[in-house]
């Protein structure tokens, strides 16, 4: 029987807590907790917990989908995609921040127009 290491337990525990919290928040119908968000979180963290507890799953995916020795390349591509997404989100936030400032400024300047009249 294969032994389970501490890091596997910790990872599975953290993933379990996150899925648990998300489930509670979803069923409490908390603001901004959509079904899509809930399922995404559950699938991602559930997979992490599953792979942590049963590393054989990763091997099974490799064999089934025929990645063979190119599994590292797949991980690399995943990182690239994550970085692209990260910078895309950063630029969206930046744009929204600018728009908020513009609205706030317009509102503030209304006062000066009133005072000028």
């Amino acid at each position: 029987m294969k032994t389970i290491t501490i890091y596997q337990i910790v990872l599975a525990f953290v993933a379990g807590i996150i899925v648990f919290q998300r489930t509670i928040r979803f069923f409490r119908r908390e603001h901004s907790q959509s079904l899509f968000k809930y399922l995404t979180f559950t699938i991602i963290w559930g997979s992490i917990a599953a792979v942590a507890l049963f590393p054989g799953i990763a091997h099974w995916i490799r064999i089934t989908f025929g990645f063979g020795d190119n599994f590292n390349t797949l991980i690399f591509i995943a990182f690239v995609i994550l970085f692209v997404l990260f910078f895309r989100i950063l630029s969206i936030i930046e744009r929204i921040e600018t728009q908020i400032t513009e609205i706030v400024r317009k509102e503030a300047l209304k006062d000066i127009k009133k005072k000028k009249k």
Partner: peptide, 23 residues
């Protein structure tokens, strides 16, 4: 002039400059 939410010193100065132009 009042920013209804905090936008930072840079934003406040820019608002001030816009107002100064109008004045």
């Amino acid at each position: 002039l009042r920013h209804e939410i905090n936008r930072g010193k840079g934003a406040a100065i820019k608002t001030g400059i816009e107002a100064a132009k109008q004045l």
